[in-house]
């Protein structure tokens, strides 16, 4: 137990503060996490952990959010607002109809969702995606902490399939008002042009569309991701094994077939960093077993490279994370079964 935490407990134990016990418990939970570990299998129901994850995730997302407003202008703010309003309406109406508490889950989803969209997307498309993602990605499964798939990705996936023309031709060069259908990834697939790594890292000096609005300022994403790992909010295994498997797998494929992009470009283009640090790590939709996390990361990496290089889509992060979300219960089940069998012998 850290010194500051001890101090907090001492203050909380003072008699004057006894009516505010719940407040102190919340602060304690948010800042230090909970010492209690649920004994059974569904660890994902731990409420305090989720609340802590939410608030830290929002903090970690600040750099990339600010950068996207800086790069792409005010429309970004309107998109974030739309996403929050629509998500909030769905959340509140479900809470009212089902007579449950309003959950803070959509704080993160409502921010992540616009960040993975093309920066000039019309607001009605944002609204449809937010509605679909929160409704079919989360509420139907019982709300925050009970969903199987990442709700923001479900929304993104749905509008990608519903409105392919809008979703593939709405990219924007940072600071420039032209709308383009090219991103570093599509450019590589079409002409084999590799965008410079420095431009990719900073998002400045790009000649093509940059990509989804939250994925452009990659230094900020890396910083936010490392912050989350250091704060012990997310586990390091999934992002590291995800990125590592993309690097290794694309390195091998690139040697056999140069039409597959080289590892450094793979790592720094598209939504990979954003997905690996902020979406694949969601504790609710990823395995709770340790080896499960490794399997999750490695398989997501392989799927990403496969889809990027051989399928009709230039970007495979969204598909791979949703697919691995779907496989998560199976992975956990198999690992637990394996363990029981070993301990029984």
């Amino acid at each position: 137990m850290r010194k500051t935490q001890k101090l907090l407990h001492k203050v909380a134990d003072l008699k004057i503060f006894s009516p505010f016990k719940a407040v102190f418990e919340t602060i304690d939970g948010i800042v230090y996490g909970t010492p209690h570990v649920t004994p059974g299998a569904p660890h994902f129901l731990d409420h305090i952990e989720i609340k802590r994850f939410m608030i830290f995730a929002v903090v970690a997302l600040i750099p990339t959010t600010v950068a996207s407003v800086y790069f792409f202008g005010v429309h970004v703010l309107w998109m974030i607002l739309t996403s929050y309003i629509v998500g909030g309406i769905v959340e509140v109406s479900f809470a009212l109809i089902r007579k449950r508490e309003i959950e803070e889950g959509f704080l993160v989803t409502g921010l992540i969702f616009p960040l993975i969209l093309p920066p000039t997307l019309p607001l009605w498309a944002v609204a449809i995606g937010a509605f679909f993602g929160i409704m079919f990605g989360k509420e139907i499964f019982g709300g925050t902490g009970r969903n199987i798939f990442n709700p923001a990705l479900v929304g993104r996936l749905f509008i990608t399939m519903a409105f392919p023309e809008i979703m593939s031709a709405r990219w924007q060069v940072p600071f420039v008002d032209t709308i383009t259908s090219a991103t570093p990834l599509t450019l590589f697939n079409a002409e084999g042009t590799l965008t410079g790594l420095k431009e990719l890292l900073l998002g400045v000096g790009l000649q093509t569309g940059a990509g989804s609005m939250g994925e452009v300022f990659r230094i900020g994403i890396i910083a936010g991701g490392i912050f989350l790992i250091l704060a012990k909010v997310t586990d390091w295994k999934i992002p590291i094994f995800y990125l590592g498997s993309v690097a290794v797998f694309s390195w091998i494929l690139n040697m056999v077939n140069p039409q597959v992009a080289p590892p450094a470009f793979q790592l720094l283009s598209g939504g990979l960093l954003f997905g690996a640090f902020f979406m694949a790590t969601d504790p609710v939709t990823s395995p709770y077993t340790r080896s499960g996390k490794v399997i999750f990361g490695v398989m997501a990496g392989i799927l990403t490279v496969l889809i990027r290089s051989f399928a009709g889509y230039a970007e495979g992060v969204m598909f791979s994370i949703i697919l691995m979300n779907g496989m998560t219960p199976l992975i956990d089940h198999m690992i637990m079964e394996n363990k029981y069998r070993k301990s029984a012998l």
Binding site: F136, I140, F158, M161, A162, F163, P164, I166
Partner: peptide, 22 residues
């Protein structure tokens, strides 16, 4: 009105029937 391409594909069928069952 933009066309919801996904509705004419398999996933659209799942979502519409799922909602109707609901």
């Amino acid at each position: 009105m933009p066309k919801w391409v996904v509705m004419s594909m398999a996933p659209g069928a799942f979502f519409v029937l799922g909602t109707l069952i609901w």
